[in-house]
Nucleic acid binder design. Structure first.
Lengths: 334, 334
DNA sequence: ATGAAAGCGCTAACAA
DNA sequence: TTGTTAGCGCTTTCAT
């Protein structure tokens, strides 16, 4: 059991080895009689086709490589879970690679991924160099970036509409009456961080306001430090737009427990992602929702499309994100 | 690039195909001259050995299957990340399978895992049936259960010392002066849930106290409902031991925001796991720390040991867990 | 140390 | 529909 070959099944069933193969190959033809005999013999022997051998011939491993940087931001485990489920439903599985977000690290990991003959690659929160893109394209392996955009073509990317999202946040904060607004931005080395900031600044600039900006690097400690810096000023902001929820929680912790300020009375806070924790009573965070389910669907669909038809062009998909009004800002709640 | 074979490298280097194989096979011998020539040719062609082909021959895929139920409890993504890193350092990679914690689901997933010829399996927060254990053993594939114990032998299991942990919690709560204590337990279908409860009840019983117990099923909503039930009584508890942090956060949310009670002044709360969020100011949760790093190390070590030497016996490892005193209980802080 | 040859378990022409 | 025959890209005897 466990190491039964198709040949053994063939002998027991009294058919050829290829007959066995056909019975287990979707879309191959065999007579009802043969199928019956083979299934029976396979059952008795506990036979299951060897995926590795199949993969070597067909060139399809049914494995998708997932490159992910950090799992401490709740958004990514969630995405991973959904991604895994969606892919599993299609008969694919996820080989997980963790990589710090440095070029060298990503490069090495991608190479390993190619070694494993993965059918496709999803990168979550990780940037691609154009060299890497070229390598994957040359190898004929479709890549979809999840929650990161890319300027140069050749890679598919699924994000939410981050520029528009930043604009929404800007307009909302203005509508709440805030004029002294700060932004603890997402990492400026990431497209998401830059886009959100850009949309936000656009709107404020048009209102004649120049927000103070500090790069929070998607890091709790950095965001906490930024909060201290911001609030230690002569005219501290009365609203802070934080580049993602993960940092926003740190900002709220710092504001409330360390500085003794009230949210939203003294300072309003707004995040980005709408991870489950944002809805929990302890934070009740107003935030831009990134619809994980829809982003996952789009990611899987894009990947499968290119798997089915390798000539399908790389796509760039943006999912709209709604503002979720909660208790960390003063406006009307949703 | 990407589909270069060892034969092409051999031709370019002017050596045999097996020479190329030797150069890329750890522990094979080749002259410095050959190595030099082969490496050069491989470099120029962008050759990398095909892991699938190698796997088929050696019978070793260098892939470890990870079965995980839910990723919304912060403890598991963290474990996944560490596990992935540790395994990656040893040249192994993780194929992730998500499975609801039902027997049928786990069964199916395990079978798929075997199809992929994984070298070993780690199950996180998932139970094993003895039938499944037998199947994996028959296939010669070592299984290590992470954060779940198993009575019958044949599988390795790494947990923290949950019975002792429950006892520690019991003693601590008593030492804080609590006498009316409730327990929202971990799922009683899991060994961890049962063990923690058992240790806890042992200690309280010896002190002549019978705690009220409700199964929280490791679920936020269930835990919140349990909290309401508990506090709606005539003599509500002044301390609640919750089966894991994930539920404890829901308990605190319910207590503070919904019921308007203060923690720990009105009710003390203590959790289990010490996920990062437990240390954040918003919760500041007293909890039993499950040392993820040490548990991961033990898991990887156990797995590798059985991979190296298949005759190595299945091991049951318990890691001690310390009590982390924070603000959700009244005693002295750590 | 190296090359030739034999497979690993399977799928995919090709005949029959 | 079925069996026969080649391989997929590699590791591993076995000679040399």
């Amino acid at each position: 059991m466990g190491n039964v070959t198709s040949l053994q099944v063939a002998e027991r069933a009294g058919v050829s080895q290829s007959a066995v193969s056909r019975v287990f190959t979707p879309g191959a033809s065999a007579s009802a009689k043969t199928v019956e005999k083979v299934r029976k013999a396979a059952q008795e022997l506990g036979y299951r086709p060897n995926m590795m051998a199949r993969a070597m011939i067909t060139g399809k491993s049914r494995i998708i490589g997932l490159v992910v940087a950090y799992l401490d931001n709740q958004f990514y485990p969630l995405a991973l879970e959904r991604l895994s489920n969606a892919l599993q439903a299609q008969g694919y599985h996820i080989l997980v690679f963790t990589a710090a977000n440095s070029r060298a690290d990503v490069e090495e990991v991608m190479q390993e991924l190619l070694d494993f003959q993965v059918d496709g690659i999803i990168t979550a929160s990780v940037g691609m160099t154009s060299d890497l893109t070229a390598r994957c394209n040359a190898a004929g392996i479709p890549v979809v970036m999840f929650n990161r955009g890319q300027d140069g073509a050749g890679v598919s990317a699924v994000t939410s509409a981050n520029v528009a999202g930043g604009e929404t946040v800007g307009r909302y904060l203005l509508s709440c009456g805030h004029r002294n607004i700060a932004h603890i931005s997402g990492w400026q080395g990431s497209s998401t961080g830059r886009d959100r900031q850009q949309g936000f600044v656009n709107v404020l600039t048009q209102a004649g306001i120049t927000p103070q900006i500090i790069d929070g690097m998607y890091d709790r400690d950095t965001a906490a430090a930024a909060t201290r810096t911001l609030m230690a000023q002569d005219a501290p902001p009365d609203a802070i737009f934080v580049g993602n929820d993960h940092m926003a929680f740190a900002v709220m912790d710092t504001l409330r427990q360390e500085l003794g300020l009230r949210v939203p009375d003294d300072v309003a806070v707004i995040g980005y992602d709408d991870v489950p924790l944002a809805a929990w009573a302890a934070y009740d965070l107003t935030t831009m929702r990134q619809p994980v389910n829809r982003m996952v669907e789009a990611t899987v669909a894009t990947l499968l499309a290119r798997l089915t038809d390798p000539t399908a062009p790389a796509k760039r998909i943006e999912i709209d994100s709604p503002l979720i009004r909660r208790g960390s800002t003063k406006g009307p709640k949703a």
